[in-house]
Write a protein that binds this DNA or RNA. Structure first.
Lengths: 162, 162
DNA sequence: CACACATATCTTGACATCAAGACACTTTCG
DNA sequence: CGAAAGTGTCTTGATGTCAAGATATGTGTG
């Protein structure tokens, strides 16, 4: 009987006409996401990073050399709007972790590339990050994780196409 | 090979020393949460509500008569900080959907109660909300949903105690 | 070539959120 | 009873986000 079960119980009492079963699934995804972010933030903070800045630096780092993408590519990878990405890039540029260079192939655009400091920072931070993540999933067995991954993947596939 | 699989592939190429398997689970929870909120927002907007305002009104509504809780109780239910809750309450009060009354039993506190309009609005909005949620989980079979619920519940239980 | 349309990014303005701390009232305990 | 510690809520200041629209460059068509 966790928090979410309790919410369902309340609704069933108050509105027995409604089918609230989907609320359990969706509610737990929300709470889980919240708890995971809260936990991961502590690790990011050790490196002066946030969800937003880690996200951008990690996207550039895992891309491989030369560690550069356009703001548009970054937007697509990180699911934020253009205004948000502009803001993230401004903050990271101010911090000296990335550089903005004119895209030689398209005068409308830029390329965002990791600075030397940005590369070194993310390369170190990601090690601590994966350790934190390993800790966070440690309540599930390896089999359970595989099962969960598969279910989440299918759930997501159904949504993202629609 | 979804977006998350691709991220893992990139990391394994760039940093084969790291165990990035947990990133898949956590990353999918994040994307799933994002997609679900995006979809549910459309329904809330039809009633002039947002994630934040729906959350508060629904918490009061499912509580049952007399549809009142303290800001502290609301904070605990909704996982936000006190500043955020104060802000949410101010907005809803301005909109005439809730009322703030002095708590007769504790001079430090208040009780937040649904106004007549607030009650009617949430009682109608929640019907559309559960329909939207039913639609969102429709990509999974009933068995899969039960499995997923169980895994999410255990995952969450491991995190929230720690 | 010139005009219309498309695309990439940035700007603006409105909110939502958090952390930290302020403030008022309550409770506890000597 | 009165001081100290605890608790409930609000305030402040900094960020992050989005939607909508502005701006500049690129592309296609007649």
């Amino acid at each position: 009987m966790d928090h979410v079960d309790n919410i369902l119980k309340q609704w069933r009492q108050e509105r027995p006409d409604l089918d609230v079963a989907p609320m359990a699934t969706i509610g737990r995804v929300k709470r889980l996401n919240h708890a995971l972010i809260r936990a991961m933030e502590k690790t990011w903070a050790k490196y002066g990073l946030t969800d937003a800045s880690f996200d951008v630096l990690a996207t550039l780092r895992r891309e491989g050399a030369p560690y550069a993408l356009s703001p548009g590519d970054l937007m697509a990878s990180t699911m934020v709007t253009s205004g948000t990405m502009t803001h993230r890039i401004n903050q990271l540029e101010k911090a000296g972790l990335i550089e903005r260079v004119k895209n030689p192939d398209d005068g409308r655009g830029f390329l965002i590339s990791l600075s030397q400091r940005g590369f070194e920072l993310i390369d170190e931070a990601v090690v601590a990050h994966v350790e934190t993540q390993a800790q966070l999933v440690s309540g599930l067995t390896v089999d359970q994780r595989a099962q969960l991954d598969e279910l989440l993947k299918q759930f997501l596939a159904g949504l993202e196409q629609a």
